[in-house]
Every structure is written in C-alpha cells, then in structure tokens.
C-alpha cells in the first residue's frame, strides 16, 4: 500500500516566514504526483519530527530556508536523529547562509548536521525524490 503513495513532508525553517516559494514548491510537487504535507512557514524541526510520526510512510523531509539562518534553524537535527526521530533523508534548499556569496564551508557545516541533500535548484526536487523511491540512494549532484 505504501509503495504507491509517495508522500513528502514540506516546510520552511523555523525562523523563516517566506511563503511564496513554499507554495510554489508544494504546487510543483503535487503536479509531479507527490502527496505533500505542507507545514508552511516558521516550522521548527520538532514539528517536522511530529509530522513524520503522524505520517511514517513519508519518504523525505524537504526544508526551505531563505533568510540565511539555515544552520541555526537546523541545529537540533543531530539530537533528534540520535533520539531516532527524523529518520528520513532531509533535503534542504534556498538561500542557506547570510551574504550573497555562498561558501562550501557553510554547506559542509549543514552536511555536518546531517542534511542529506542540498539543492541549488527546486526544479531538481522531483528527480531527487524519484531517486529516493528507488532501492539505493543517489547523490543529488
């Protein structure tokens, strides 16, 4: 039964109230055939974890962050994972650190927290999610 429904949990990071891109990405994923539980703007990781506990068949957690505070907002990811929660690929995209030039360093810090996929283009999202539906994980880039 769970093999046919491809559900994802979508939301914007805790300190971020950017709604437009969130609505567009939810729309894009729905057009691509995914069931989207959209938690909307300003969503702490705890709420993503609770949503996953409500919908355990979800294949991934998709988090947008546009205000440059991704690291602060995702800081509790290692702890949640250590507690056995948020046990799904976390896909992160947007504008991930303050300033107009992005360093590899800031992306490494996010990977260090346990972010599985960092996306520079929301167009790639359906393909990345498709790859998660296959037996083995495929690297996004």
């Amino acid at each position: 039964m769970t093999t046919e429904t491809r559900s994802v949990i979508l939301g914007v990071a805790a300190s971020d109230a950017h709604a437009v891109a969130n609505h567009l990405i939810a729309g894009r994923l729905r057009y691509a055939g995914f069931a989207v539980e959209n938690l909307g703007v300003c969503t702490p990781l705890e709420e993503f974890a609770e949503a996953l506990e409500r919908s355990p068949h979800s294949i991934a957690i998709v988090i947008g962050s546009l205000n440059g505070h991704a690291y602060e907002d995702l800081r509790s990811l290692p702890q949640l994972r250590a507690e056995g929660r948020l046990d799904r690929p976390v896909i992160l995209g947007g504008n991930l650190s303050v300033g107009s030039r992005k360093s590899n360093e800031s992306l490494e810090l996010l990977r260090g927290l346990g972010v599985d996929v960092i996306l520079d283009d929301p167009d790639k999202l359906p393909f990345v999610l498709d790859s998660l539906c296959r037996p083995q994980l495929v690297d996004a880039q």
Binding site: H18, V20, A21, L66, G93, G94, N95, D120, D121, P122
Partner: peptide
C-alpha cells in the same frame, strides 16, 4: 531571472 534567484527575493 532563474528560479533560485526568485526564491531569494520573493517573500
């Protein structure tokens, strides 16, 4: 403008 640019600006 490419989409990622939009994502940074639209609010």
């Amino acid at each position: 403008e490419p989409l990622p640019q939009l994502l940074q600006e639209a609010s």
